[in-house]
């Protein structure tokens, strides 16, 4: 069996939920899945390729389980996006026990260039899941309210 980190492609996707939208990150480790879920969150607002990683913002969260940790991580980013009027395109996550140390790189929202479609109100506990799929890849997902 080869190295999973090399075999498994890190990626994100959206899934449908009534009036809102689901974000999903997939990767070889829980940390990568969290990073990709954050990228999926950016993609709810704009095409991540339009965003330039100019400035770094650090966030920390702590939660009693990995599912709540994902909700907290996404909500921390939603808060930073709102108060700093920023949008992010690159993420780095370290998880130790119930603590998450994360960084997000991005830039100020530029309405003309980013054409932001919608602002995210909050991450929810709907369709919330952090775990491995049948292929052994980590999945981190939940629905976000827009």
């Amino acid at each position: 069996m080869g190295d999973l980190t090399q075999e498994c492609a890190s990626r994100w996707e959206h899934f449908a939920h009534g009036a809102d939208i689901g974000v999903r990150g997939i990767g070889a480790t829980k940390e990568i899945a969290f990073e990709q879920a954050a990228l999926s969150l950016t993609a709810v607002v704009t095409d991540p390729a339009r965003v330039v990683a100019r400035r770094k913002v650090d966030v920390q969260c702590e939660a009693e389980n990995r599912e709540t940790l994902l909700v907290d991580w996404l909500n921390a980013l939603i808060y930073e996006m709102a108060v700093r009027r920023m949008i992010f395109r690159r993420f780095e996550v370290h998880i130790e026990g119930d603590r998450l140390q994360g960084s997000a790189w991005g830039e100020d929202i530029d309405v003309a260039r980013h054409e932001p479609a919608v602002e995210v109100k909050g991450a929810t506990y709907t369709s919330l899941r952090v775990g491995r799929n049948e292929a052994g890849e980590w999945i981190a997902q939940c629905v976000v309210d827009v």
Partner: peptide, 17 residues
């Protein structure tokens, strides 16, 4: 606006716990 969203987020978490 953002105030309501943040209150909703925080109290949902507190109530879940």
């Amino acid at each position: 606006r953002g105030l309501g969203h943040q209150i909703g987020t925080e109290f949902l978490r507190d109530m879940v716990t």
